[in-house]
Simulated assay, not measured.
Amino acid sequence: MTLLTLDHLTVRRGDCPVVDAATLTIGAGELVGLIGPNGAGKTSLMRGALGLLPHEGQSSLTALPSDRRARHAAWLPQSREIAWPIAVETLVMLGRTPHLAAGQRPSDADRAAVTRALATMDLNGFEGRAATALSGGEQARVLIARALAQDTPLILADEPIAGLDPGHQIATMAAFARLAAAGKAVMVSLHDLGLAARHCTRLILMHKGRIHADGLPAAVLTRENLAQVFGISAHMAQGPDGIIFQPLEVLT
């Protein structure tokens, strides 16, 4: 089942295309890593796909009415600002809003979804704490939990593991992988190429607003692509537990 289709999606900043005619499909069961250097267009691609930026071309998400779109795709932006001292459980419950009618109180199913999301993000015992009193990494995990509680077929997450400690980075990627294995799809932008190679079923490499490569991690993280797009060399090997990828040095 196809959960996202982009057809020549273009996002401009002034006259300059920051996303240039991106065409792709994402299907159920995929954990797609969106990679590329700073300014490559990763965030703009996801925001354009969601209709949060003016764009040319087509996105299957923007063709949906807003209420259906909110039940189809959860969006986790880079920004992690939590403005009010709201309780963690209440904040995560906001992820259930697309499933509730106006004035409707959360059901047992809604509460169960929140409980699952909190447990997934290692937040048991945090339910009553004010989200603004948490560390930056803990707040990031709360916001990921809110997106998980939305329980949509598709998740778009922009650098969700930035600032998390290594254990929670790995646990978050593993949680995304389990969602994909269960028939959902996740597109996640990443700068950690090692985690991208290890956990993602597919990588999309962006460079100067264009999709430069798209395929299995080993086919995308080639010596040529790493040199041309990132200007680095790296070591990659297939270990018993999967791909092991380590950037080595900047090429001059």
Rank of each mutant, 00 (worst) to 15 (best):
T2L: 13
L4V: 02
L4A: 01
T5S: 13
L6D: 02
L6Y: 03
V11F: 08
V18L: 02
A22V: 10
A22L: 12
T23E: 02
T25R: 13
I26V: 15
I26D: 00
G27T: 07
A28F: 04
G29R: 04
G29P: 03
L31G: 04
G33F: 10
I35L: 12
I35N: 01
P37S: 12
N38M: 11
A40G: 07
S44N: 07
M46K: 00
R47K: 07
G48F: 00
G51V: 01
L53N: 01
P54H: 02
E56A: 12
G57W: 06
Q58Y: 04
Q58K: 00
L64P: 00
L64E: 00
S66V: 12
R69W: 11
R69A: 13
R69M: 12
R69D: 04
R71W: 02
H72D: 00
A73N: 00
A73G: 00
L76F: 11
P77A: 10
P77K: 04
P77C: 05
R80H: 05
W84G: 11
W84Q: 15
P85K: 11
I86E: 14
I86C: 15
A87F: 11
A87N: 11
V88C: 09
E89K: 14
L91T: 09
G95L: 09
G95I: 06
R96C: 12
T97A: 14
H99L: 06
H99I: 05
Q104N: 05
R105W: 05
D108V: 13
A109F: 00
D110H: 00
D110Q: 04
R111L: 13
V114L: 05
T115C: 06
A119K: 05
T120W: 04
M121N: 01
F126G: 07
E127Q: 15
L134R: 09
G137H: 14
Q139D: 14
V142S: 03
I144L: 07
L148P: 02
L148H: 01
Q150L: 12
P153W: 05
L154D: 03
I155Q: 05
L156F: 13
D158H: 15
P160M: 12
I161M: 15
G163W: 10
G163D: 09
P166R: 14
I170H: 15
A171S: 13
T172E: 06
M173G: 06
A174Y: 11
A174V: 11
A174I: 08
A175W: 01
F176Y: 06
A177L: 07
R178S: 05
R178P: 00
A180F: 09
V188S: 13
V188W: 04
V188Q: 09
D192G: 13
L193H: 08
L193K: 13
G194R: 12
G194Y: 09
A197D: 08
H199Y: 15
C200L: 09
T201R: 15
I204F: 14
L205P: 10
M206P: 04
M206F: 07
K208V: 14
I211A: 07
A213G: 06
D214M: 14
G215Q: 10
L216D: 11
P217R: 13
A218S: 14
A219C: 08
V220R: 07
T222F: 10
R223S: 12
R223C: 08
N225F: 09
N225G: 13
N225I: 10
L226W: 06
A227M: 12
A227K: 09
V229D: 05
A234K: 01
A237W: 03
Q238H: 13
Q238K: 08
G239Q: 10
I244D: 07
F245L: 12
P247N: 03
L248S: 02
L251A: 07
T252H: 15
